[in-house]
Amino acid sequence: MTEIRHYKIGEDRFKISEDEVARRELKVTKVADDVIQIQEEIHGIIALVGATSTVNIKKDELKELIKIVREEFGWTDIC
């Protein structure tokens, strides 16, 4: 069985109240030869409910994502 590796491409901390700071991590995982998964984990926010899922990607995180899918996942046709 192939080992699944997660690559962290971004990390932030931001203040959400007077005494609470949230932490955000953005990770990419190769699911299949032609499929990747982008995962955004936010820790510190209690309620997050809904049917829609979104991922916020900064410019430098997108550059890191492209680098990883080229070098680690072998996707040579990404530009």
Rank of each mutant, 00 (worst) to 15 (best):
residue 34 D to H: 11
residue 55 V to W: 04
residue 51 A to K: 13
residue 59 K to S: 11
residue 73 F to A: 04
residue 48 L to P: 01
residue 37 Q to D: 08
residue 60 D to R: 14
residue 46 I to R: 14
residue 36 I to W: 05
residue 34 D to K: 14
residue 52 T to H: 08
residue 7 Y to A: 01
residue 52 T to I: 14
residue 46 I to M: 13
residue 71 E to L: 10
residue 4 I to G: 02
residue 6 H to M: 13
residue 7 Y to L: 01
residue 52 T to A: 12
residue 50 G to R: 05
residue 2 T to R: 14
residue 19 D to E: 14
residue 54 T to W: 03
residue 30 K to D: 04
residue 10 G to D: 06
residue 69 V to F: 05
residue 11 E to Y: 15
residue 73 F to C: 03
residue 65 L to K: 00
residue 9 I to F: 03
residue 15 K to L: 10
residue 30 K to F: 04
residue 23 R to W: 07
residue 10 G to E: 07
residue 8 K to V: 11
residue 47 A to T: 13
residue 75 W to I: 04
residue 36 I to C: 12
residue 22 A to Y: 08
residue 49 V to C: 05
residue 20 E to Q: 15
residue 29 T to N: 02
residue 75 W to D: 03
residue 37 Q to H: 08
residue 19 D to H: 13
residue 13 R to S: 12
residue 9 I to A: 02
residue 33 D to Y: 04
residue 47 A to N: 14
residue 53 S to W: 00
residue 59 K to L: 07
residue 56 N to M: 10
residue 56 N to Q: 13
residue 6 H to Q: 15
residue 54 T to C: 04
residue 34 D to Y: 09
residue 71 E to R: 11
residue 62 L to N: 11
residue 8 K to G: 02
residue 38 I to D: 00
residue 9 I to N: 03
residue 70 R to M: 05
residue 22 A to W: 08
residue 37 Q to C: 13
residue 20 E to L: 15
residue 21 V to T: 15
residue 20 E to A: 12
residue 12 D to L: 13
residue 77 D to A: 09
residue 27 K to G: 00
residue 76 T to R: 15
residue 7 Y to C: 01
residue 38 I to C: 04
residue 21 V to H: 02
